[in-house]
Structure formats: structure tokens, C-alpha cells
Simulated assay, not measured.
Amino acid sequence: MQRYLWTIVAVLAAAAIALLVVEVVHRVIRRLGRRSLLMTELTQHAHRSFQVAATVLAVQFAVRFSTGYAVGTEWRQVLLHILVLTVIATAAWLVAALLVVAEDTALARFRVDVPDNRHARRVRTQVVMLRRLTIAVIVVLTVGVMLMTFPAVRGIGAGVLTSAGVVGVVAALAAQSLLGNVFAGLQLAFSDAVRLDDVVVVEGEWGRIEELTLSYVVVQIWDDRRLILPTSYFTSTPFQNWTRTEAAVLGTAEFDVDWSVPVQAMREELRRLVESSELWDGRVCVLQVTDATGGTIKVRALVSAANAGSLWDLRCLVREHLVAWVRDHRPTAMPRMRAEVGDAGSDLAWQWVQPRRPVRRLGDGDVPDDARIFGGSDDGDARSEAFVGPDEPVEARR
């Protein structure tokens, strides 16, 4: 009984000393690291794991040196084995906490709340994927080391290793889909094909990459729905990434109007509208006639915005305003099917309505910037150099 009491006292003393030392170290690091992000992260995220690991290790040493080797052999071995398993688990917890601290410190250098955050989102995606992978590896290694402390497991280890090739093949075939998603997740993280907060169009849905894991990707749809896809989808299926190089994007609004529409007046109205809106980023404002068949012409307004959300609102604003403008100021330009009966001079009132205000006429060879996509401005010239190919660009639906 005296030896048991001595063991209990030794364990309590060791635990108290360990807790005291950890607390002193914690306070010193917190005081010295007030201006250091790394020290602050250590005190916040690694304190608890360090405290538990140090306490368990101190208790193990107290039990080992206070019980001796000849007294109470059976219960001593069981207790020490349990303490060894606990030390392994707490050490893995501490290592994982230190890795998380290092990753959080690295992420703090890259801000995502700035307009040009493409590089920061790329680094954040890679770090998050590495964090998930490293934690999974730590858990697997910890379980393996804990199992190897059992003599029975060590005894069958040789037999397991001899059949490792067959087992590996069977496991690879059984987990083919899972492993494919894991490798696809790593490929996405380091190929820069898609990043967190990227705006994408998948399965006909427009949304934002909300979460990217080793096995699946969560896309937040614009109406707050969540589309969950396996990571292998993004490596095997074409998809649209609107923010692959930058957040600024272009969008269109198309109108079917009558041949009598004054295109230049409509172009000037579009320019006036976007210049008065905070949604426009000042890059592109173009209005062109892209088709003229079936008794109507198709007028397309191309505008730009700083991000996909602003572009959506801007496109809706352009549609609403120009529809109202055609209805109120150019009613004869509204699309209609008609059969003409009258003189060819178009002198009848229903055949022609004079515009309410004069339209500015352009000189010979004078083409306004708002009538060109691939030219007429610095941005248009750069786009013309980038898109060298067919004489007529492919129509974009978005």
C-alpha cells in the first residue's frame, strides 16, 4: 500500500509540475509574441495539445520510475502500455496543431478581401488541401504506430507484408473511385484550374466555389442552393471558370427590334446608362447589330463589370432600361409583323415617325468606340490581338 501511495503522489506531482511548466511557457510566449503572428497562433491553437501531451508524458515517467521493475509487474505493464498509447495520440495531436499553426501563419500573408485576390485564393486552396491531406496522413500513421505497440500485431506483421502486393491491388480496385477523387482534388489544388471563391458555370448552374476537399467540391449557386460534385468532375468534364485569370468579366444583353431602330441613338443611350451606374467598371461598353433576319434585327449590348455579381445586375439593368427606352422613345422600333399597303414614299404617318430629338451624325469613316468589340480602343485592340482566328467571333451566350 505504501508503494501504491508513493506512485499516486509521484503521478500527481509530475502532472502538477508539467502543468506549471506549460503554463509558464504559455505566458512567456504570449508576452513576448504580442506583435508576432506566429507566437499568437501558437498560444491560441497549440496550447491545449501541448498541455495534454506534456502532462501525459510526465505521468508516464512518474509511473515508470516510481513503481520499479519487480513490483506489480502485470498491472504496471498494462498501465504503461495505456500511457504509451496516450502519449502517441497526444503527440500526434500536437504535431497536427503545429502544422495548422504554420499553415494559418502562411495564409495570413495572403489577403482574399482585396479586388485582385487571384494569387491569394490559389495559395489558400493549396494550403487547405495540404492541411486535409497532412491531417489524414497523421491520423493513419498514429493508428499504425499504436497498433505496432501490441506484440500480437508485430507478430503478424511479417505475414501481412508478404501479402501486401495482393492486398494493395485488391484495395486499389475496391477504392478506385475514392482514390480517383483524391488525386483529382490534388490536381485541382496544384494545377490552378479552380480555386476557392472562383465563379464557375457547371451543369447549367452559375455559382461560386465554396468548399474544395479531396473527394468533393461544393458550389454555392447564386440562389443559395448548394451543388455538390465529386472532384473528378472538374478534371473530366468541361466547365466555365469566369475568374480564372481575373474577376472582371464581360456580359451581353440582346434585343430583337425592328429595322427602323436608330442604332446610333440606342448606342448613345447605352453609354449614358452605364456611365451613370456604379456597376460598370469603365472597360467595355459596345452596342452592335449582330444579325438581321426574319424581319427584325438583333442588337447586342456588351458591357463589363468588376465581378460576376455586378455583371448580372448590370445586364439586367441594361435590359430593363433599353426595353423602356425603345417602348417610350422609339415605339416604331418595337418588333412586329406587318404587311405594307400604301405608297412607296413612306409618307403615311404609321410608316414613319420622326425622332423627337436629332441624332448626332458621324463623319465619313468615323466609327464610334461603342460599335466595336475588337478595336476602336486600347482594350479592344488588346482583345483583337488575343482573339486571332475566324473573321466573325463565335457568339457567346453568357
Results as ranks from 00 to 15, higher is better:
Ala91Thr: 15
Ile156Gly: 13
Val140Thr: 11
Ala91Ser: 15
Arg109Met: 08
Asp104Lys: 14
Thr55Ile: 03
Arg111Met: 09
Trp75Ile: 11
Thr142Ser: 02
Val84Pro: 01
Val127Arg: 00
Gln77Trp: 08
Thr90Met: 05
Gly159Cys: 03
Ala106Phe: 09
Thr90Ser: 10
Ala58Tyr: 01
Val145Met: 10
Val63Thr: 03
Arg131Trp: 04
Ala91Ile: 11
Leu133His: 08
Val100Tyr: 06
Val143Asp: 01
Arg131Phe: 03
Arg109Ser: 10
Val123Ile: 11
Gln60Phe: 12
Thr142Pro: 01
Asp113Ile: 07
Ile82Ala: 15
Val100Lys: 04
Val84Met: 11
Leu107Ser: 05
Ala136Ser: 15
Ala89Ile: 02
Val139Lys: 04
Val143Phe: 05
Phe65Thr: 15
Leu161Lys: 08
Val63Gly: 02
Val63Met: 02
Ala136His: 06
Leu57Ala: 15
Leu161Thr: 14
Leu130Gly: 06
Phe65Asp: 13
Val56Leu: 11
Gln77Leu: 13
Val139Ala: 14
Leu133Glu: 06
Phe61Ile: 13
His81Leu: 11
Leu161Cys: 08
Val95Ile: 15
Ala97Cys: 03
Ile82Ser: 13
Arg131Ile: 04
Gly155Arg: 09
Met146Ala: 10
Arg122Ile: 06
Ala158Leu: 11
Arg121Cys: 10
Val145His: 07
Ile135His: 11
Thr73Arg: 14
Ile88Ala: 07
Gly144Glu: 12
Arg111Glu: 13
Ala62Ser: 07
Met146Tyr: 00
Val139Thr: 12
Ala102Lys: 10
Leu107Asn: 02
Met129Val: 15
